[in-house]
């Protein structure tokens, strides 16, 4: 017997509660009824159905295998869920009725919260979501011009110019884009609701739950 194994044998049992697996974590953080993530049988229907499957680093099927293998960091760093277009083909076809699309949202939220999205090859995507959400938080409505400008200026400055001169201009010319944001009347109320929602989510996280 080596010293190492002796050490391990002698070390006291950890007093803390057993660590929650990544699988449990994502299950708990997914809204609605039982998302059935543990039921994946690795048949590949999702990966085969996914319109952006060829561009994903890992197919959704592999993501399930990686989650079950507790490969937390690798999963959250991947671009898979950022390439999800929410077409729901996987979910409609899954023979195990796993809520696959919902998993993608859960992973997006985790990756944003924990900063993993910056390490992903799809690092532009979270900004788009965030800018979109910012506009909604501010005005209660989406604001295409603001969103596009802000987003493209950060990520594709050249594209932004193209946007402004090409498609964007055309959009405005055809009256399909606003120059100023529209806002709802009760922005204050909406903001109160959303900040309360954020508080609830924060509390949940602090209480060891997830959100």
């Amino acid at each position: 017997m080596t010293i190492d194994t002796l050490d391990i044998a002698a070390s006291p049992m950890p007093a803390t509660v057993p660590k929650r697996s990544f699988l449990q974590e994502v299950i708990e953080d997914t809204p609605g009824s039982d998302p059935r993530f543990e039921m994946c049988i690795q048949c590949g229907t999702c990966g085969g159905s996914c319109p952006s499957g060829p561009d994903m680093e890992y197919s959704p099927r592999r993501i399930f295998a990686m989650i079950k293998a507790d490969m937390r960091e690798e999963v959250l760093k991947s671009n898979t869920f950022w390439y999800c277009v929410s077409c729901y083909y996987c979910m409609a076809r899954c023979p195990q009725q796993v809520h696959i699309t919902d998993l993608m949202y859960t992973l997006k939220r985790k990756a944003v919260r924990e900063g993993y999205c910056r390490k992903s090859t799809a690092s532009d995507a979270p900004d788009f979501s965030e800018f979109f959400a910012d506009a909604v938080l501010k005005y209660g409505r989406s604001f295409e011009l603001g969103l596009a400008t802000r987003y493209h200026l950060r990520h594709h400055p050249l594209g932004a110019i193209k946007m402004a001169t090409g498609m964007g201009l055309e959009m405005m010319r055809k009256g399909r884009m606003d120059l100023t944001p529209r806002r709802i009347k009760n922005v204050d109320q909406l903001q109160a609701i959303l900040s309360k929602a954020e508080e609830i989510a924060r509390q949940e996280r602090e209480q060891g739950g997830v959100a």
Partner: peptide
């Protein structure tokens, strides 16, 4: 599809 990616509760 964007907001779902940021905060579930919100």
């Amino acid at each position: 599809v964007e907001f779902m990616a940021i905060d579930k509760m919100q």
